[in-house]
Design a protein around this nucleic acid. Structure first.
Lengths: 188, 188
DNA sequence: AGGGCCATGTAATAGGTTACATGATTGC
DNA sequence: GCAATCATGTAACCTATTACATGGCCCT
């Protein structure tokens, strides 16, 4: 399981509340790990009672108070232990691939609309990632005067490049899928 | 949920027992959907009692008897309904991406071995897919004399091409990750 | 007055993983 | 004799999803 670890990494990058984490999991971290607020609150509660994270009540004006979580020594140790453990490449779940193979027993042409919709969504994701890259990773490499190279920034960037490569690959494949479906619909 | 549907597609491609399905989910279908035998037996039982699939006891010699499942009319209808429903692109879970961002708070150099191990696994997967492509999708397009173009074959092939594209993209990205980690380890 | 954002949660259900359990046959 | 393959399952547990629930502030 890595939701624990994803949350720890996010809190190390910047402490925050359950709500803020949920928002980050809709963007940024969400590019490579998804979680809903219900999951996040549950895990935060468990990690707090295990002493992995600390809480601080932050009163706010014009907004409900929030609980700001930050990583404690035990949490850092747990993350470090996990980082040193080998993990297996994650198992894949591609609904669309199931649908494509299933289309052989239904109407392949009917899938064209669905694949076009997918293509649209991935086009938007790619644009979103590219905008993020332009915003966060262009210009001076080290914004801190004469500071050391920022490892965190470099590592976040390489992960984002992975997301960009994934979307580009997916778009090319979806074009291949569309061409195949159209060929079949035209009776070869 | 799509395990039901993945099983229906697999049974339409070829009827079989729970055990055989479990084996297919280690290869072929397993490229884009994973399931263990426990899950499969549970779902088969449910689908059978819902009348989606039919069973036939097949006595065997030198082996335990098996139950061969095939898709019933209700199952076909359920699959067809699902095929016509829009689905959202699946949520992503990349342990390695979490590790990479987490490495900023630990030792980035320690991740190099892990990433190299990943690279190895993906190299093997790519080789496996390419061998499968060579075996199943090369040579005469229509092995049945003067038959119509086989839609199932074409669709299986385009899904496999997706797997190949995914592995190639992943390998290129892992090289990028390794270069980044080595640069950081060398103190930029 | 209504919708959206901030903020936190509970409850029920569905889905997935791990461990345990059995038993025959084939090959080393 | 031991391990692997074929074949089917149960039980316990953990994780994830969906729906429900509350309540104040801000903006239109």
């Amino acid at each position: 399981m890595a939701l624990d670890h994803a949350i720890l990494v996010s809190l190390l990058e910047k402490p925050g509340s359950g709500y803020e984490l949920a928002r980050r999991f809709e963007r940024s971290i969400g590019y490579f790990w998804t979680a809903t607020h219900q999951q996040i609150y549950r895990v935060l509660k468990r990690m707090e009672s295990d002493g992995w994270i600390d809480v601080r009540e932050v009163p706010q004006q014009g907004r409900p108070d929030k609980k700001e979580y930050s990583v404690a020594a035990l949490g850092r140790a747990a993350l470090s232990a996990w980082l040193h453990e080998p993990i297996e490449p994650e198992s894949v779940r591609h609904d669309l691939a199931v649908k494509i193979r299933g289309a052989a027993f239904d109407d392949p042409a009917a899938l064209i609309r669905e694949v076009e919709r997918y293509r649209q969504i991935h086009t938007e994701r790619l644009a979103h990632y590219l905008a993020g890259e332009l915003r966060d990773f262009t210009g001076p490499e080290a914004p801190h005067a004469a500071g050391p190279p920022d490892a965190g920034r470099e590592l976040q960037h390489v992960v984002l490049r992975g997301g960009i490569a994934y979307e580009r690959m997916t778009l090319a494949w979806l074009d291949d899928v569309l061409a195949t479906l159209r060929r079949l619909a035209a009776g070869r």
